[in-house]
Write a protein that binds this DNA or RNA. Structure first.
Lengths: 120, 120
DNA sequence: CAACTTCGTAACTCATGACTTACCGTAAGC
DNA sequence: GCTTACGGTAAGTCATGAGTTACGAAGTTG
């Protein structure tokens, strides 16, 4: 459902770096900011995006906010990619079979063309 | 290796729509442009990005250029997500165990703090 | 209570990129 | 050979978002 927001979230290199930091254990914002080449508010904003995308979870302990990877969000992305992957493999196999049977037979054009449009 | 370019490529909704069109079968540029709310040059540019990211392959047949999903590129993304997913699960389990053993024992702070920096 | 730490938000700047129109190269059909 | 379909590229516009500094809110510690 919401794999689209997660995809957009994973597009940014800094956000991927944040997730890489969180792979081993949960961290608070200041720790991540020290390990990254950007300011702490930037990390906060990225964490906001990652949280909205369902990729991380936040827990407050004292004045510090700890963030950890949310496996559910990652699972949604995996599902999307898995579906696309299997579909692509099936289409590839179908295409190969059709190509082989066309190679033995007469070669007819794939699509009878009718002016494919240029405008949206 | 190159999952980063692929991630950036999948960030755009139009590019994801192109990949969704290609899930069933290979298509030429004009066909995709007709099925999408953008102009044909826009589709060309998106296909260029997807091709550079290793997510699609191109084959010329006559004047038409057919594009299909490249399963290899999708596999790279799956590998990245799989690694992150298993790491996140392991970290989650470790965190849960540490929390339970701390709940029975004395509660010590997680990290002895030393001024986490604000500047990059 | 007062000082300090930690973090989120607001306001702003600036670069990236998504889209358009216009143009040119290339293969097919009369 | 000339015309037509198809698609890639160039140049330009405009919106989005990643980054910064400045400030305020919530909590801990002396």
């Amino acid at each position: 459902m919401s794999y689209e927001v997660a995809m957009a979230a994973l597009a940014d290199p800094t956000r991927r770096a944040i997730l890489d930091l969180l792979r081993t254990r949960a961290l608070c914002v200041g720790e991540m900011a020290m390990a990254l080449p950007v300011s702490r508010p930037a990390v906060s904003q990225h964490l906001r995006v990652l949280s909205d995308a369902g990729l991380v979870t936040a827990t407050s302990r004292g004045t510090r906010n700890f963030y950890a990877i949310d496996p559910e969000g990652v699972a949604a992305l995996r599902g999307y990619l898995d579906a696309m992957w299997s579909d692509a493999l099936a289409a590839f196999a179908r295409e190969a079979e059709r190509a082989s049977e066309r190679g033995a037979d007469a070669r007819h054009p794939d699509v009878p063309p009718t002016r494919t449009g240029d405008r949206p």
